Computed example of a mutant assay.
Amino acid sequence: MTGVAGGVLAVDAGNSKTDVAVVAADGRVLGTARGGGFRPPAVGVETAVDALGEVVARAFTAAGVGAVGHVSACLANADLPVEEEQLAAALQARGWGTTVEVRNDTFAILRAGVSEPRGVAVVCGAGINCVGMRPDGRTARFPALGRISGDWGGGWGLAEEALWWAARAEDGRGGPTELMRTLPAHFGLGSMYALIEALHLGHVEHDRRHELTPVLFATAEEGDQVARAIVDRLAEEVVAMAVVALTRLELLEEEVPVLLGGGILAAGRLQLDDRVRELLGVRAPKAVARVVTAPPVLGAALLGLDAVRAPSAAQGRVRGHFALRAGVGAS
Rank of each mutant, 00 (worst) to 15 (best):
F217R: 11
G281E: 06
G27A: 10
R317F: 02
R58Q: 09
Y193R: 15
A294F: 02
A169G: 04
G320C: 09
L110E: 01
A90Y: 01
L163D: 00
P40V: 10
P176T: 12
A108V: 11
A25K: 09
V122W: 03
L251Y: 00
G7F: 05
R248D: 08
A194R: 05
H203F: 05
A24V: 11
A126H: 13
A301Q: 06
N104W: 03
G174V: 06
F217N: 07
N104F: 04
R138N: 09
G66V: 13
R248S: 10
Q271A: 14
G223C: 14
R269Y: 09
R181D: 13
G64L: 12
Q86W: 04
V20R: 06
L272T: 04
E170A: 09
A301M: 08
C74F: 06
A90Q: 04
T32G: 05
R208M: 12
A227E: 02
T99L: 10
A108C: 12
A266K: 06
E253I: 14
L80E: 08
F217G: 02
D232L: 14
D207Y: 15
R39P: 01
G44E: 11
G223M: 15
L272R: 06
D151E: 15
V243C: 04
R147E: 08
D19I: 10
L158F: 02
T99K: 06
G127H: 09
G14A: 11
R173G: 00
H321K: 12
Q271N: 05
A5I: 10
A67S: 14
G263W: 01
V292H: 03
W152V: 10
K17A: 11
A266M: 07
G153S: 02
V308K: 03
A300R: 03
L75G: 01
E83L: 14
D273K: 01
A112N: 06
G329H: 08
V288Y: 01
T219E: 09
L270I: 13
A162Y: 01
D224N: 13
A220C: 08
G7L: 10
P184Q: 08
D207N: 15
T247F: 14
E101V: 14
E236R: 15
V45T: 09
A67E: 03
G137R: 03
R134L: 13
G281C: 09
N77M: 12
T139N: 06
E237H: 09
H186A: 09
A166T: 01
A51Q: 12
L298W: 02
E116K: 12
V68N: 00
G14D: 03
L199M: 12
E178K: 14
L298P: 01
R290M: 13
G14K: 07
G155S: 08
E250W: 02
H186R: 15
R181M: 12
T177H: 03
T177V: 08
A284D: 00
A73Y: 00
G35T: 04
A25W: 01
D306N: 10
V123K: 11
G261Y: 12
G153V: 05
V43M: 07
A42F: 05
S331H: 13
F60Q: 02
L260G: 04
L246F: 06
A140S: 15
P143N: 07
L305T: 11
E253D: 15
V131T: 07
G146V: 13
H206K: 13
R283Q: 15
